[in-house]
Simulated scan of single mutants.
Amino acid sequence: MFFQKHFLLAISIASILIFESCNNTDYSDAIQLSGSIAGYESGYLVLFSVDTASSYPIDSVKPDGNGNFRLRIAVEGEGFYFFKKGRSVSVVFPAFPGDSLQFDFNPSLKAVVQGGREAEIYAEFSSGISSAEASMDSLTRAMLNARHTPDFAKIRATTDSAFNRIKFELKNEAIAFIQSNPSLLSNILVINAMPGRAVLFDETTDYNHFFVVDSLLQLYHKGNKHVAFFHSRANRLRNRIEAEREAMLNLTPGSIAPEISLPGTSGQVMNLKDKPGKITLIYFWTPTDALSRKSNAGIKELYEKYKGDGFAVFAVSFDPFMDRFTNAVNLDKLWWNNVNDTLGMKSPLLSEYQISGFPAFVLIDKEGRIIERFLSDKALAIWLEENFAKVDAK
């Protein structure tokens, strides 16, 4: 009896200690998420964590009969999350340790967000993206409905103009958001926004905005995994821009054209430098590109017109398949020097010659020095008409 009483007493004391421990749990490293789903009937609300290159589910909750839910998760640092229920997906939201966020979801998981260090202010910006996407969807439907009408061309032009205006206004809002909130981790989401599945900021033309955001993130959130990933991306972009600038300096008129050494239709390697003594057009194209195939006819006319006066063509194709390249040469009757790079769009020649689209044209003189670059066969034809005799006489 003595041992039984003491055993029961020990159990009681342990229970009290456990209860007190639970009541005193420190939730400073946790995120508390609560809210409601309008029109909720059944199913689980799944919470996903966004990693640097993917996303994965980390918890779930089943709302009560009124659609109310509450969820608490422990986190190691700030990050990005989203909810999913069936096929419905919420927008991504930022959350920090200690945040308490309230969500008012509609049936498709569009939400009004309150609370949190950044979630509420970012939600205001993301609602603008949602509105823009709704407008884009409406314009797309109008254009599709008109595709068989006599006014389709006019409607499409109007639609394209409206698309560009929406994107322009949204980009200005994004820039203003970053300028007004320089310390936010959410700027990663802003710079990567894709309304209507189209990038808002393009790395090629908007790289300065990427560099600004990278500098701000390094200042305020250095050490965060998302910031580290974005920093690596920004550094790759910096290196690419620097390489492009260096390449452009090497492609100025008067510079020696970079060497090209590739196999021709017979498989034998041909070198650009082995074809001296003529004014040569380096013609970049690809057999699978409609504009290139159309341009072939124009280049053939120029070749026939000027070849007797010392004009040559050194055509460089970018196709992974030699057979397709050879067939295109024979089908289009391209009887000049033809070579092909089976690396295709991964060819280093594209960066060396700064080729961003096909077809592209670089004219070099008899010594292999660059005379001029052209973006169309029509521009090339006009230049040759006005200048070929002068250049050939040198």
Results as ranks from 00 to 15, higher is better:
M1T: 06
L8P: 03
I11N: 08
S12N: 07
I13D: 06
I16W: 08
L17R: 05
S28T: 14
G39H: 04
G39A: 03
E41C: 01
S54Q: 08
D64A: 12
E76Q: 12
E78C: 00
G79D: 05
G86F: 13
V89S: 08
V89G: 02
V91N: 12
V92S: 02
F93Y: 13
S100C: 11
S100T: 06
S100R: 12
F103W: 01
D104T: 06
V112C: 03
V113T: 09
Q114D: 00
E118R: 08
A119M: 06
E120Q: 15
E124W: 04
S127K: 14
G128L: 14
I129V: 11
S130T: 11
M136T: 03
D137F: 14
T140W: 15
R141G: 00
M143N: 09
M143T: 07
R147E: 10
F152H: 03
F152P: 00
I155C: 01
I155L: 07
R156S: 10
A157H: 08
D160M: 06
S161D: 05
S161V: 03
K167E: 06
F168Y: 15
E169K: 05
K171V: 11
A174L: 05
A174S: 06
Q179S: 13
P182I: 14
S183N: 15
L184V: 03
L184Y: 15
I188C: 00
L189W: 02
V190D: 07
I191Y: 10
L200G: 09
T205H: 11
Y207W: 12
F210G: 00
L216T: 02
L219Y: 12
Y220S: 09
V227N: 00
A228D: 15
S232T: 12
S232F: 13
A234I: 08
N235Y: 10
N239V: 15
I241E: 03
A243D: 01
A243L: 01
R245G: 05
R245H: 01
L251M: 03
A257P: 02
L262V: 13
L272M: 14
G277M: 13
Y283R: 02
W285M: 03
W285F: 11
P287Y: 15
A290K: 10
Y303M: 02
Y303Q: 05
A312D: 15
A315H: 11
D319E: 15
P320D: 12
R324V: 09
D332R: 05
K333Y: 10
K333I: 12
K333E: 15
L334Q: 11
W336C: 01
M345Y: 06
P348H: 13
L349T: 07
Q354T: 09
P359I: 13
V362K: 07
K366A: 08
G368A: 06
A379E: 07
A381E: 06
I382F: 06
K390D: 10
A393G: 05
